[in-house]
Design a protein around this nucleic acid. Structure first.
Length: 255
DNA sequence: ATGGTTGTTGGACAA
């Protein structure tokens, strides 16, 4: 099963920049989308259907903000909307599709760049999420947790580790959280297959022509439960896709 | 330390 994770930074904007062409050539079985920035009736489900994809989504209460979705061309046996906590589910941050022998989640972890209040919110979410993921893994041993984690894990995941050491997304406590998340039984599929690959980023600031200079951050991940890490056939980053300030990342899991 | 850009929505705000 070929699974993508793509923070589209507004699905309607992405549609005007060739999202459908990208989807058509992707050969994706499942696409985990973050930042739809749209209410459910604003999401172009019928267009996705023309390419064979059903769309399930959880939008934020606030218009134009956050929101996650899953596109799939295989029928899931079950969809789980949210994580069960209103404070997070009101922001549309998680949705999960259960297939016969694999579950896939699309997760939009909070950003902490807009101030202390949101950084605190992010850290509280991360603490909650780690516990939630542990319990989920006990219930569903074969699971892929895709999404925008808004954290660079190590120094090779960011273009300027020294200059960003006090910046949200590369703070010591966030990187430590990522260490612990991995220790709790999840594998960073891209890094597992490409342990030394540098300059492989999934997000670039719109400021100062960061993308053309490849001054980026790797903050989008397909994290797989350890039990299925030996089924990883391929793990890739797709910087040529230009529908967003993020690019898609993917993992292929042997059926 | 500030400012640079973008998307959504309606004058800012979040990222």
């Amino acid at each position: 099963m070929k699974i993508y994770s793509y923070n589209v930074n507004g699905i309607r904007a992405a549609m005007t920049k060739g999202f459908m062409n990208w989807l058509e050539q992707s050969d994706a079985d499942v696409v985990c989308i973050q930042e739809t920035k749209a209410q459910e009736d604003q999401i172009p489900k019928l267009e996705f259907k023309t390419l064979g994809y059903d769309c399930y989504c959880l939008s934020a209460k606030k218009k134009g903000y956050s929101g996650v979705a899953i596109l799939t061309r295989k029928a899931p046996k079950n969809i789980v909307y949210g994580c069960g906590k209103d404070i997070y589910d009101n922001e549309g941050r998680m949705i999960r599709a259960d297939f016969e022998n694999l579950s896939v989640a699309s997760i939009y972890h909070p950003s902490g760049t807009s101030g202390d209040e949101r950084q605190d919110f992010k850290m509280q979410w991360l603490e909650f999420f780690n516990q939630y993921a542990l319990e989920l893994q006990r219930e569903i041993p074969a699971i892929v947790l895709c999404g925008d984690y808004n954290i660079c894990h190590t120094e090779i995941d960011i273009h300027d580790p020294k200059g960003n050491k006090n910046h949200s997304g590369f703070l010591p406590e966030e990187r430590l959280w990522f260490d612990n998340f991995i220790k709790s039984g999840f594998t960073d599929s891209f890094r597992f297959l490409h342990p030394d690959q540098k300059d492989a980023y999934s997000w670039w600031s719109y400021f100062a022509q960061s993308r053309s200079k490849n001054k980026g951050w790797r903050i989008d991940y397909c994290m797989v439960s350890d039990m299925i890490k030996n089924r990883i056939k391929q793990a890739s980053i797709h910087p040529e896709a230009m529908q967003s300030d993020h690019c898609p990342v993917s993992v292929e899991i042997e059926d």
